[in-house]
Nucleic acid binder design. Sequence first.
DNA 1: TTGTAATTACGAAGTGCTTCGTATAATTTT
DNA 2: AAAATTATACGAAGCACTTCGTAATTACAA
Lengths: 123, 123
Amino acid sequence: MKQKPTESELEIMQLLWECGPLTVRKLNDKLNEIRKVGYTTTLKIMQIMTEKGLLIRNTDHRSHIYSPTLRPEEVQNTVLDHVIKTVFRGNRSSLILQALGTHSSSPEELAEIKALIKKLEEK
Amino acid sequence: MKQKPTESELEIMQLLWECGPLTVRKLNDKLNEIRKVGYTTTLKIMQIMTEKGLLIRNTDHRSHIYSPTLRPEEVQNTVLDHVIKTVFRGNRSSLILQALGTHSSSPEELAEIKALIKKLEEK
DNA sequence: TTGTAATTACGAAGTGCTTCGTATAATTTT
DNA sequence: AAAATTATACGAAGCACTTCGTAATTACAA
C-alpha cells in the first residue's frame, strides 16, 4: 500500500470491512443510509478502485461482488504515516501526545495504553 | 479551524511556523530547497490562503509579508480529528494504539508518554 | 526620465476525483 | 417472445487544487 486512498474510496472500504463482500447495489444502499449518492457514481468509483488494486471482484454472476484487498490496519498505517510526515514533521510521539492530551481520555483507554507500553518496554 | 488545509497549504504553513513571517520570494526559495516550484505558483497559493483566512499579510511595503493565522497544534488537531473520524471510525484510542504499536518506539518516547498518562490520571 | 528588475494580479490550462447521463447487455416478468 | 427491470461500461461535465504564462504595477538605477 503506497498511495493513501481518497475519501470516497475510504468510505467504501469501511463499509466492505464492516459488512463483508457486497454488490454495488448493496453497497450503494448502505452508503445512502449515510448520504445521497447515485448508483452509477458508486459503481464508477468501485471500478476505478478495482483498477487500482484496492478491490477485487467476483464476476461469476451478473452482479459482481466486491471485496477489499487490504486490511483496515494496513490502510490506517498508510494514513498515519502520511499524517506524521506531513503534519507532525515526522515526529510520531508528537502525534501520540497530541491525541492523548487534547481530549480527555477515559480511565479504560489509559489503562489500555499503559498495558501496551509495558509490553513494548519488555522487549 | 473547520476545514483541513491542502497538502500545499500545509507545506507553506510548516515553513512559516519554522521560519517566521516571510515574503513570497523567501518562502519560495525555502520551498525550492525541498522541491521545484515556480514563483507564481507559490504566490497564487499564498494569495488563496489569504482569501481563506489561513494567512494574513502585511502590505505596507511592496513585498508583502505573510504570517499564518493558526498555530501548529490547531491544525494538527483538525487533521487528527478528521483522521480519527474517517479512518479509525471515531475511535481515538485505536489510533493511539496503532501509532504506538506498529513502529518500534524508543525508550525516551515511551517515557514521555508514560509521564503524560500519569498526569492525566491524576486529574 | 528612461529602462531594468522585481512584485503582484489575473487568467487559463492541467490533473485527479466525483458525479451523473446514456448506451449496452443480461436477467426476469408477463 | 416481448417488455420491463437491473446490471455494467463508458464518456463527459463539474469541482477543487496546482501550475504557469503574461500583463500590470512598483521600485530602483543608469
